[in-house]
Amino acid sequence: MSDPIFPAVDPARLAAIHAEAFAAAWDRAVLAELLASPGVFAVAEEGGFILIRVVVDEAEILTLAVRPSAQRAGLGARLVEAAVVRAAALGAERMFLEVAEGNGAARALYARSGFVEMGRRRGYYSHADGRREDALTLVLNFSR
Rank of each mutant, 00 (worst) to 15 (best):
A92T: 12
E98G: 03
Q71V: 09
G48S: 00
A88T: 13
G102Y: 09
I61H: 01
T63F: 05
V54H: 01
E98F: 06
M95Y: 07
R67I: 05
A82M: 13
F96K: 04
A82Y: 13
V55N: 02
V56N: 01
V84Y: 07
P68W: 11
V80Y: 07
E58S: 03
A77R: 15
R86I: 09
I50G: 02
M95F: 07
G48W: 02
V85F: 15
E101N: 01
I52M: 03
V56E: 02
G47Y: 05
E93W: 14
L97G: 01
G76E: 13
G48F: 00
A100S: 08
Q71K: 13
N103F: 08
I52S: 01
R86G: 07
A77C: 11
V99T: 00
I50M: 01
A70C: 11
R94F: 10
S69N: 05
G74K: 14
L51R: 01
G102M: 06
F96E: 02
N103K: 06
A73W: 06
A87M: 11
G102R: 09
E81R: 15
S69F: 12
E101C: 01
V99D: 05
V80R: 05
A87K: 12
G74F: 12
A100D: 05
L79S: 10
R86S: 08
R67Q: 08
A92W: 12
A65R: 07
R86E: 14
G47M: 02
G76D: 13
R72A: 14
R53T: 00
G104A: 11
A88M: 14
Q71A: 08
G91P: 08
E98A: 06
P68F: 09
A59N: 03
L62E: 02
A73D: 06
R67M: 08
L51T: 00
G74V: 09
S69M: 07
E60W: 03
R53E: 03
G104E: 11
A88V: 11
E58D: 09
V85M: 13
A89E: 15
A65G: 06
T63R: 05
I52V: 03
G104T: 09
V55W: 04
V56I: 10
A73I: 04
V99R: 12
E101P: 03
A82F: 11
A87V: 08
V85A: 15
A77T: 14
V55Q: 03
E93M: 09
Q71G: 07
M95G: 02
A87Q: 12
V99F: 11
G91R: 10
A73C: 12
V80P: 10
T63S: 09
A65D: 04
G76P: 14
G48N: 00
V99I: 06
V55D: 04
I52D: 01
R94N: 04
A100M: 05
N103G: 04
A73L: 15
L75H: 12
F49K: 00
A83R: 05
R53P: 00
G91E: 11
P68Q: 05
L79R: 11
L75E: 14
G102H: 07
V99Y: 10
E60H: 09
A59F: 04
A88N: 12
I52N: 02
E98H: 09
V56T: 03
N103A: 05
R86D: 07
S69A: 14
A77M: 15
V85Y: 15
F96Y: 13
